[in-house]
Design a protein around this nucleic acid. Structure first.
Lengths: 304, 304
DNA sequence: TGTTGTGATAGCCATGCGTTATGGACGTCC
DNA sequence: GGACGTCCATAACGCATGGCTATCACAACA
């Protein structure tokens, strides 16, 4: 039914040399091994491929019929192998950059530039990941590096470089009472204490510690938050806020993703700032990955 | 380096089903066997071919690159197998008929007709064999059946049917003294006794008993023949006789092959007649071979 | 007549590739 | 929420495959 490619290779070589001993040498196997394999192939095909007279080996009509096909198969397999090698090379050069929302802040072009200056063959590819995954695809391998919000669950599995630290703001519906209070505030801000009774939009439970972080659990004491809804994208968040399902904390730099139409954002006093990092798996030592992380470190400590 | 065709088949099937269990069923192997083979293939290629997430199996980029090649290889192997089958069928229907010289006597068309009436697919192919082989190719398998002159060496290896029995004649140069004597004879013949001192053309030594037969050794008592030359074809025989190297016995029906220009043939008294047979190897039981022999028997005993 | 070249055979061992049994991670259903 | 079904991976094991070396059989040749 099937052949082993090796057998075709053996066959083609014997057909070329018409001498088992020499063919065996060319194939780097012993002559008996070659004889046996050819016999097995003949047995499998139910016909002989070579006439072996005492002094000479020559192809039978069947062997003659098989030879061109065998050569074609061998060539096709070569081509298939080459295709696989190409695909492997492409995969090796591709760096999938996961992100829950565009990191903005000029980060992507800066990092990209540093990466390709070191590895001109590298092909960075951006990938949008659902908010339910706080590792932005690192965990399941669908991203090679990722923009993530700290804290990162399971964080010994990842290494990261913080690329931005910025205050959190709260997104509110336009007509919300706190919007007016903020407008009256001398800083245009609200205290987190005033938000404790508000329903909050939360990340899906799978997000783990990150869900807690955006609910600012650590600033609530023993008061549990009211959950007004679960959101997993900027679009859903905007909709939910506009519909009055709840309010949500955001990084200041991300406010623009949600603020439009009925929704505004105001600074919040009394919550820690948010930290955005570039992360990769600890066990991933590929040079392009390490280079991207190094670039992120330099961006963070560099001119800003 | 090489692949087993089976592995490509497995790969293509999994790629189609995207489910190892179902693919294993379609391939009539157990699911673990399939899993293992795919892993081995991936190991061999140095890359993974499938993403196996918890709930889904899908091709990697490399797998995607390999798939069309795998399909092509499988199709090519199908074609190769078909070509081999065709060649086998052709070989099975081909009947190689060996002969040292054309048997003439209307035998070939008669036997061919009987063969194809029984086996319409049979393709009789004529093959001229050097006179050094008294089996006309049966011995080394290059003929399936053969027209041979008795006695046949090694004759338990062959079965045969005598298809002609006819007197032997002697071929002489035109100006040979015995030519004149024959002309004066009331039967136009010569006695073999008068030929004992003549140089004879002989078959090559490999011809064994047949060489002795055409030297008529059994009619010479203890007188050893003088050998004027060794001949292995009608053309050589004609040349050698015309050049005066010697004379030669021939079957009457074969005289025309040698008699022209300087050479004549005259009947000989005192030698046994020659017997032409159709022979095949005893261990060859193929229907077309047996049919050809049976046809030869009927020709011999039939209307003549 | 011994030497050389060639393919086939024998005996041995490591690996390949199949099997069944079982495990573990998810879903789904009652 | 516990039992069950689905799906892929692993473990343990056995027969077949495919390699090796040593040796034979035979023809050619010196």
């Amino acid at each position: 039914m099937d052949v082993h490619g090796r057998d075709l290779r053996y066959f083609a070589t014997v057909a070329e040399e018409l001498n088992f001993t020499r063919a065996a040498e060319r194939l780097f196997v012993s002559q008996p091994a070659l004889s046996k394999q050819i016999r097995m192939l003949e047995k499998q095909l139910g016909t002989s491929l070579f006439h072996r007279d005492r002094r000479s080996v020559r192809l039978t009509a069947t062997g003659e019929a098989l030879l061109p096909h065998a050569r074609e198969l061998l060539a096709s397999w070569q081509a298939a192998q080459a295709a696989v090698e190409d695909a492997k090379a492409a995969e090796r050069h591709t760096l999938v950059i996961g992100m829950s929302t565009s990191p903005g802040r000029g980060l992507l072009p800066a990092l990209r530039a540093r990466l390709v200056s070191l590895y001109p063959d590298a092909r960075p590819v951006l990938r949008q990941v659902n908010w339910a995954d706080p590792s932005a695809g690192l965990a399941d391998g669908s991203s090679d590096v990722a923009f993530v919000w700290l804290p990162l669950p399971d964080d010994e599995r990842y290494r990261y470089a913080i690329v931005a630290e910025e205050p959190r703001v709260v997104a509110l519906p336009y007509g919300h009472p706190l919007a007016a209070r903020a407008a009256a505030d001398h800083e245009g801000a609200v205290d987190f204490a005033d938000l404790l009774d508000e329903p909050f939009l939360a990340l899906p439970p799978e997000a783990g510690p990150l869900r807690d972080y955006w609910l600012a659990l650590d600033s609530r004491g023993d008061r549990t938050p009211r959950i007004g809804g679960v959101v997993a994208s900027a679009e859903e968040t905007h909709e939910a806020i506009a519909n009055g399902q709840g309010v949500a904390l955001l990084a200041a730099g991300n406010a623009s993703l949600v603020v439009r139409d009925e929704v505004i954002a105001v600074p919040v006093r009394g919550v820690s700032p948010s930290r955005l990092a570039v992360a990769a798996r600890t066990d991933d030592e590929r040079p392009t990955v390490l280079a991207y992380l190094a670039a992120a470190e330099r961006v963070a400590t560099g001119p800003s």
